[in-house]
Simulated assay, not measured.
Amino acid sequence: MNQVVRWRKSSYSGGGDGNTCVEIADLDIHIGVRDSKAPDRATLTFTAAAFLPFVHSLKETRH
């Protein structure tokens, strides 16, 4: 059985058509991350435990 993956865009998508961001999806026990401008390219996957520190580190680098 194939899993239906529902990708969600970041709330920081910006103006215009909103495709200059990343998308995330719940993948069973992992979280997928992909570039919204190139959705058919490689996808990063994180465990739930690793995803939160990843997001926090991105927020810290923005400042």
Score class of each variant (00 low, 15 high):
37 K>W: 05
32 G>W: 09
41 R>I: 05
44 L>M: 14
21 C>F: 05
20 T>S: 07
61 T>G: 11
23 E>R: 03
24 I>T: 08
4 V>I: 05
47 T>Y: 12
18 G>N: 12
30 H>W: 09
34 R>N: 03
50 A>V: 00
63 H>Y: 10
35 D>M: 11
28 D>G: 13
59 K>F: 06
32 G>L: 06
19 N>C: 01
43 T>P: 01
33 V>C: 14
15 G>D: 02
11 S>V: 03
32 G>K: 09
18 G>Y: 07
20 T>M: 07
18 G>D: 13
26 D>W: 05
13 S>N: 01
61 T>R: 13
29 I>M: 11
38 A>C: 05
39 P>Y: 09
35 D>C: 11
62 R>L: 14
28 D>K: 10
1 M>N: 02
60 E>P: 00
26 D>F: 08
27 L>C: 10
9 K>A: 03
6 R>T: 14
13 S>T: 08
30 H>N: 11
13 S>Q: 05
42 A>L: 12
8 R>Q: 14
33 V>G: 08
23 E>K: 07
34 R>T: 01
59 K>C: 10
22 V>R: 02
20 T>R: 09
46 F>T: 07
26 D>P: 00
8 R>Y: 10
58 L>Q: 12
3 Q>G: 00
60 E>Q: 06
12 Y>T: 04
38 A>Q: 13
7 W>V: 02
14 G>L: 03
38 A>T: 10
35 D>K: 10
57 S>G: 13
9 K>R: 13
25 A>D: 03
5 V>P: 05
42 A>K: 13
50 A>K: 08
7 W>E: 01
59 K>N: 13
16 G>P: 06
34 R>Q: 06
51 F>P: 01
22 V>Y: 06
3 Q>E: 06
46 F>A: 10
62 R>K: 09
14 G>I: 04
41 R>Q: 15
4 V>L: 04
23 E>W: 01
62 R>H: 12
45 T>M: 14
19 N>P: 01
10 S>Y: 03
23 E>C: 02
60 E>A: 13
25 A>G: 06
24 I>V: 14
3 Q>Y: 05
